Amino acid sequence: MRILLTGAAGQLGRHLAPRLAALGDVIGTDREAGDFRCDLSDRRLLDKSLARVRPDLVVNPAAWTAVDRAEDHPEMALRINRDLPGWIGEWCATQDVPLVHFSTDYVFSGTRDEPWAEDDRPAPDSVYGRTKLEGERAIEASGARALIVRTAWLYSHFPGNFLSAILTRAGRGEPLTVVSDQVGSPTWAGHLADAVIELIRRHDDLGDGVQRFHVAGRGRYSWHAFAELAVARAAEAGVIDAPVAVEPIASARWPQKARRPAWSVLDCSRYERLVGRPLPSVGDGLDACLTNWKEDAAC
Protein backbone atom coordinates (compact mmCIF):
# COMPACT_ATOMS: atom_id res chain seq x y z
CA MET A 1 0.00 0.00 0.00
CA ARG A 2 1.24 3.47 -0.92
CA ILE A 3 0.41 6.12 1.68
CA LEU A 4 0.63 9.84 1.01
CA LEU A 5 1.30 11.77 4.22
CA THR A 6 0.84 15.53 4.05
CA GLY A 7 2.30 17.84 6.68
CA ALA A 8 5.11 15.35 7.11
CA ALA A 9 7.34 17.86 8.91
CA GLY A 10 4.73 18.81 11.52
CA GLN A 11 4.60 17.39 15.03
CA LEU A 12 1.79 14.95 14.19
CA GLY A 13 3.26 14.07 10.81
CA ARG A 14 6.58 13.19 12.46
CA HIS A 15 4.80 10.82 14.84
CA LEU A 16 2.60 9.33 12.11
CA ALA A 17 5.34 8.55 9.60
CA PRO A 18 7.10 5.67 11.44
CA ARG A 19 3.78 4.14 12.50
CA LEU A 20 2.30 4.31 9.01
CA ALA A 21 5.44 2.60 7.71
CA ALA A 22 4.17 -0.59 9.34
CA LEU A 23 1.19 -0.48 6.95
CA GLY A 24 2.93 0.31 3.67
CA ASP A 25 5.25 2.63 1.79
CA VAL A 26 4.97 6.18 3.16
CA ILE A 27 5.56 9.13 0.87
CA GLY A 28 5.73 12.32 2.93
CA THR A 29 5.31 15.84 1.62
CA ASP A 30 5.49 19.30 3.15
CA ARG A 31 6.25 22.82 2.01
CA GLU A 32 9.94 22.54 2.91
CA ALA A 33 10.52 18.89 3.76
CA GLY A 34 9.48 15.29 3.19
CA ASP A 35 10.20 12.95 0.30
CA PHE A 36 9.21 15.81 -1.99
CA ARG A 37 8.21 19.42 -1.42
CA CYS A 38 4.78 20.72 -2.30
CA ASP A 39 2.92 23.95 -1.63
CA LEU A 40 -0.39 22.38 -0.60
CA SER A 41 -2.19 25.71 -0.93
CA ASP A 42 -1.72 25.45 -4.72
CA ARG A 43 -4.30 23.06 -6.16
CA ARG A 44 -2.36 22.61 -9.39
CA LEU A 45 0.69 21.39 -7.46
CA LEU A 46 -1.45 19.21 -5.21
CA ASP A 47 -3.11 17.53 -8.20
CA LYS A 48 0.30 16.92 -9.79
CA SER A 49 1.51 15.36 -6.53
CA LEU A 50 -1.50 13.07 -6.24
CA ALA A 51 -1.10 11.98 -9.85
CA ARG A 52 2.59 11.36 -9.26
CA VAL A 53 2.24 9.34 -6.07
CA ARG A 54 -1.03 7.52 -6.90
CA PRO A 55 -1.61 6.66 -3.22
CA ASP A 56 -3.87 3.91 -1.92
CA LEU A 57 -4.45 6.00 1.24
CA VAL A 58 -4.10 9.71 1.99
CA VAL A 59 -3.41 10.87 5.56
CA ASN A 60 -3.80 14.63 5.94
CA PRO A 61 -2.56 16.25 9.16
CA ALA A 62 -1.56 19.40 7.23
CA ALA A 63 -3.36 22.44 8.65
CA TRP A 64 -3.12 26.12 9.48
CA THR A 65 -2.80 25.85 13.27
CA ALA A 66 -1.69 29.40 14.18
CA VAL A 67 -4.94 30.26 15.96
CA ASP A 68 -4.32 33.96 16.54
CA ARG A 69 -2.72 34.58 13.14
CA ALA A 70 -5.78 33.06 11.49
CA GLU A 71 -7.79 36.04 12.73
CA ASP A 72 -5.57 38.30 10.60
CA HIS A 73 -5.19 35.90 7.66
CA PRO A 74 -8.58 34.20 7.23
CA GLU A 75 -8.14 33.66 3.49
CA MET A 76 -4.98 31.60 3.98
CA ALA A 77 -6.51 29.67 6.87
CA LEU A 78 -9.50 28.86 4.65
CA ARG A 79 -7.24 27.69 1.84
CA ILE A 80 -5.35 25.25 4.04
CA ASN A 81 -8.11 24.20 6.46
CA ARG A 82 -11.10 24.13 4.09
CA ASP A 83 -10.01 24.09 0.46
CA LEU A 84 -7.10 21.63 0.80
CA PRO A 85 -9.10 18.83 2.48
CA GLY A 86 -11.91 19.43 -0.02
CA TRP A 87 -9.52 19.09 -2.96
CA ILE A 88 -8.00 15.93 -1.51
CA GLY A 89 -11.48 14.57 -0.84
CA GLU A 90 -12.53 15.16 -4.45
CA TRP A 91 -9.49 13.29 -5.75
CA CYS A 92 -10.04 10.44 -3.26
CA ALA A 93 -13.70 10.17 -4.26
CA THR A 94 -12.89 9.85 -7.98
CA GLN A 95 -10.15 7.27 -7.29
CA ASP A 96 -12.01 5.37 -4.53
CA VAL A 97 -9.10 6.02 -2.15
CA PRO A 98 -9.77 6.43 1.59
CA LEU A 99 -8.80 9.64 3.38
CA VAL A 100 -7.82 10.27 7.00
CA HIS A 101 -8.21 13.89 8.06
CA PHE A 102 -7.72 15.69 11.39
CA SER A 103 -9.97 18.28 12.99
CA THR A 104 -10.16 20.01 16.33
CA ASP A 105 -11.98 20.65 19.58
CA TYR A 106 -12.17 24.29 18.45
CA VAL A 107 -15.27 23.45 16.40
CA PHE A 108 -17.14 23.59 19.74
CA SER A 109 -17.86 26.47 22.09
CA GLY A 110 -19.88 27.12 25.20
CA THR A 111 -19.87 25.83 28.74
CA ARG A 112 -21.24 22.48 29.84
CA ASP A 113 -20.61 19.72 32.36
CA GLU A 114 -20.08 16.81 29.98
CA PRO A 115 -17.64 16.11 27.15
CA TRP A 116 -18.47 16.91 23.55
CA ALA A 117 -19.55 13.91 21.46
CA GLU A 118 -19.13 13.53 17.70
CA ASP A 119 -22.80 14.27 17.01
CA ASP A 120 -23.02 17.40 19.17
CA ARG A 121 -23.71 20.60 17.27
CA PRO A 122 -20.52 22.54 16.42
CA ALA A 123 -20.42 26.28 17.10
CA PRO A 124 -16.87 27.58 16.57
CA ASP A 125 -15.90 30.98 18.00
CA SER A 126 -12.71 31.60 16.02
CA VAL A 127 -11.53 31.76 12.42
CA TYR A 128 -9.42 28.68 13.08
CA GLY A 129 -12.39 26.72 14.43
CA ARG A 130 -14.68 27.85 11.60
CA THR A 131 -12.19 26.96 8.88
CA LYS A 132 -11.57 23.51 10.39
CA LEU A 133 -15.32 22.87 10.53
CA GLU A 134 -15.67 23.99 6.92
CA GLY A 135 -12.89 21.53 6.05
CA GLU A 136 -14.95 18.72 7.56
CA ARG A 137 -17.95 19.82 5.51
CA ALA A 138 -15.87 20.05 2.33
CA ILE A 139 -14.82 16.43 2.78
CA GLU A 140 -18.46 15.41 3.29
CA ALA A 141 -19.45 17.26 0.11
CA SER A 142 -16.66 15.56 -1.86
CA GLY A 143 -18.19 12.10 -1.47
CA ALA A 144 -14.93 10.58 -0.26
CA ARG A 145 -14.67 7.63 2.11
CA ALA A 146 -13.09 9.41 5.02
CA LEU A 147 -12.18 9.23 8.67
CA ILE A 148 -12.28 12.60 10.39
CA VAL A 149 -10.43 12.48 13.70
CA ARG A 150 -11.03 15.39 16.06
CA THR A 151 -8.42 15.88 18.73
CA ALA A 152 -7.54 18.47 21.37
CA TRP A 153 -4.57 20.31 22.87
CA LEU A 154 -1.99 18.39 20.86
CA TYR A 155 1.56 18.44 22.18
CA SER A 156 4.88 16.68 21.66
CA HIS A 157 8.57 17.00 22.46
CA PHE A 158 9.10 18.83 19.17
CA PRO A 159 9.22 22.65 19.21
CA GLY A 160 6.17 24.75 18.48
CA ASN A 161 3.51 23.62 20.95
CA PHE A 162 2.36 24.48 24.48
CA LEU A 163 4.39 21.83 26.29
CA SER A 164 7.66 22.51 24.52
CA ALA A 165 7.19 26.25 25.08
CA ILE A 166 6.58 26.05 28.82
CA LEU A 167 9.26 23.45 29.50
CA THR A 168 11.81 25.42 27.52
CA ARG A 169 11.08 28.42 29.75
CA ALA A 170 10.99 26.30 32.89
CA GLY A 171 14.33 24.80 31.88
CA ARG A 172 15.76 28.32 32.05
CA GLY A 173 14.32 28.74 35.53
CA GLU A 174 11.65 31.22 34.42
CA PRO A 175 8.32 31.27 36.33
CA LEU A 176 5.18 30.68 34.27
CA THR A 177 1.80 32.37 34.07
CA VAL A 178 -0.86 30.12 32.51
CA VAL A 179 -4.58 30.45 31.77
CA SER A 180 -6.70 28.63 34.34
CA ASP A 181 -10.27 28.96 33.00
CA GLN A 182 -10.02 26.94 29.78
CA VAL A 183 -10.55 23.20 30.27
CA GLY A 184 -9.76 20.45 27.78
CA SER A 185 -8.01 17.14 27.18
CA PRO A 186 -4.26 17.44 26.48
CA THR A 187 -3.20 14.84 23.90
CA TRP A 188 0.26 13.48 23.19
CA ALA A 189 0.84 13.30 19.42
CA GLY A 190 2.28 9.79 19.76
CA HIS A 191 -0.90 8.40 21.32
CA LEU A 192 -3.00 10.14 18.68
CA ALA A 193 -0.86 8.55 15.96
CA ASP A 194 -1.26 5.13 17.61
CA ALA A 195 -5.04 5.57 17.68
CA VAL A 196 -5.13 6.55 14.01
CA ILE A 197 -3.31 3.35 13.06
CA GLU A 198 -6.01 1.39 14.91
CA LEU A 199 -8.70 3.23 12.94
CA ILE A 200 -6.97 2.67 9.61
CA ARG A 201 -6.75 -1.06 10.31
CA ARG A 202 -10.52 -1.10 10.84
CA HIS A 203 -11.44 1.32 8.06
CA ASP A 204 -12.93 -1.28 5.74
CA ASP A 205 -15.39 -2.28 8.48
CA LEU A 206 -16.64 1.26 9.15
CA GLY A 207 -18.84 1.72 6.08
CA ASP A 208 -18.94 4.35 3.37
CA GLY A 209 -19.05 8.13 3.62
CA VAL A 210 -17.54 10.12 6.46
CA GLN A 211 -16.96 8.62 9.90
CA ARG A 212 -16.02 10.90 12.81
CA PHE A 213 -14.08 9.92 15.91
CA HIS A 214 -12.88 11.93 18.87
CA VAL A 215 -9.41 10.97 20.10
CA ALA A 216 -7.82 12.81 23.01
CA GLY A 217 -6.03 12.23 26.29
CA ARG A 218 -8.30 10.66 28.92
CA GLY A 219 -8.99 13.26 31.60
CA ARG A 220 -9.75 16.95 31.86
CA TYR A 221 -7.33 19.71 32.79
CA SER A 222 -7.12 23.46 32.65
CA TRP A 223 -4.05 24.80 30.89
CA HIS A 224 -2.77 25.84 34.31
CA ALA A 225 -3.29 22.40 35.86
CA PHE A 226 -1.63 20.73 32.89
CA ALA A 227 1.32 23.11 33.12
CA GLU A 228 1.74 22.35 36.83
CA LEU A 229 1.66 18.61 36.13
CA ALA A 230 4.09 18.96 33.23
CA VAL A 231 6.61 21.00 35.21
CA ALA A 232 6.50 18.61 38.16
CA ARG A 233 6.92 15.48 36.04
CA ALA A 234 9.59 17.07 33.85
CA ALA A 235 11.62 17.80 36.99
CA GLU A 236 11.13 14.22 38.22
CA ALA A 237 12.22 12.88 34.82
CA GLY A 238 15.30 15.10 34.68
CA VAL A 239 14.09 17.04 31.63
CA ILE A 240 14.43 20.26 33.66
CA ASP A 241 16.59 20.83 36.71
CA ALA A 242 13.86 21.89 39.13
CA PRO A 243 10.19 22.92 39.18
CA VAL A 244 9.27 26.57 38.73
CA ALA A 245 6.27 28.52 39.95
CA VAL A 246 3.16 28.28 37.76
CA GLU A 247 0.74 31.12 38.42
CA PRO A 248 -2.88 31.05 37.22
CA ILE A 249 -4.40 33.83 35.15
CA ALA A 250 -7.89 34.40 33.73
CA SER A 251 -8.37 34.34 29.95
CA ALA A 252 -9.68 37.89 30.04
CA ARG A 253 -6.31 39.06 31.35
CA TRP A 254 -4.26 37.18 28.76
CA PRO A 255 -3.98 38.97 25.39
CA GLN A 256 -5.20 36.70 22.59
CA LYS A 257 -6.85 37.70 19.32
CA ALA A 258 -8.86 34.51 18.90
CA ARG A 259 -11.45 33.27 21.38
CA ARG A 260 -10.61 29.84 22.78
CA PRO A 261 -13.24 27.36 23.94
CA ALA A 262 -13.77 27.56 27.70
CA TRP A 263 -14.72 23.88 27.69
CA SER A 264 -13.41 21.54 25.00
CA VAL A 265 -13.22 18.14 26.68
CA LEU A 266 -13.95 15.48 24.06
CA ASP A 267 -16.05 12.34 24.54
CA CYS A 268 -13.92 9.55 23.05
CA SER A 269 -16.23 6.64 23.91
CA ARG A 270 -17.06 5.91 20.25
CA TYR A 271 -13.40 5.19 19.54
CA GLU A 272 -12.95 3.26 22.79
CA ARG A 273 -15.96 1.03 22.04
CA LEU A 274 -14.59 0.30 18.58
CA VAL A 275 -11.13 -0.78 19.74
CA GLY A 276 -12.28 -2.31 23.03
CA ARG A 277 -10.02 -0.41 25.41
CA PRO A 278 -9.67 3.08 26.89
CA LEU A 279 -7.37 5.68 25.48
CA PRO A 280 -4.25 6.49 27.53
CA SER A 281 -4.61 9.07 30.27
CA VAL A 282 -3.20 12.57 30.07
CA GLY A 283 -0.57 11.59 32.63
CA ASP A 284 0.47 8.52 30.64
CA GLY A 285 0.78 10.66 27.53
CA LEU A 286 2.89 13.21 29.33
CA ASP A 287 5.24 10.54 30.68
CA ALA A 288 5.65 9.02 27.20
CA CYS A 289 6.36 12.44 25.74
CA LEU A 290 8.98 13.22 28.38
CA THR A 291 10.69 9.91 27.61
CA ASN A 292 10.87 10.95 23.95
CA TRP A 293 12.17 14.36 25.03
CA LYS A 294 15.09 12.84 26.93
CA GLU A 295 15.90 10.44 24.09
CA ASP A 296 15.78 13.01 21.28
CA ALA A 297 16.68 16.23 23.17
CA ALA A 298 14.76 17.96 20.36
CA CYS A 299 14.03 21.16 22.27
Rank of each mutant, 00 (worst) to 15 (best):
V26E: 01
V26D: 01
D35F: 04
L40D: 08
R37Y: 02
E32W: 14
D39K: 03
D30G: 12
R54F: 05
V59H: 03
P55K: 00
A33N: 12
R54A: 15
K48P: 00
G28T: 04
L20K: 00
R54L: 14
I27C: 02
S41G: 15
A21G: 14
V26I: 10
D42I: 09
T65R: 10
V53R: 02
R52S: 14
E32S: 13
W64N: 11
I27Y: 00
T29I: 13
L45G: 04
D47K: 11
R44F: 08
W64F: 15
S49C: 13
D30T: 05
A21K: 07
V59K: 00
D56L: 03
A22E: 13
D42L: 05
R19W: 01
D56M: 05
R54N: 11
A22I: 05
T29Y: 04
F36V: 05
G34S: 08
L20S: 02
A63K: 07
T65W: 12
V58W: 06
R19M: 04
I27H: 07
A62M: 09
C38K: 06
T65H: 13
R37Q: 13
R54W: 07
V59E: 03
E32H: 13
F36K: 12
A21M: 02
L45C: 07
D42E: 12
R37G: 03
A51D: 14
L20P: 02
V59D: 01
A51K: 10
I27F: 08
L20Y: 01
A21L: 05
V26H: 02
S49F: 05
G24R: 07
D42W: 02
N60W: 08
I27M: 00
N60F: 09
G24M: 09
D47I: 12
A66K: 11
D47W: 14
F36C: 11
N60K: 07
R19Q: 13
R54K: 15
G24C: 11
T65K: 11
G34C: 05
R31I: 15
A62F: 07
L40R: 04
L20R: 00
T29K: 03
G24K: 06
D30P: 03
R54G: 09
V59Q: 03
P55L: 00
R37E: 12
L23I: 10
E32G: 12
E32V: 14
A63G: 04
L57E: 09
D39P: 10
R52H: 14
L46Q: 06
L45N: 10
L57Y: 06
D47R: 13
R44A: 15
L50M: 11
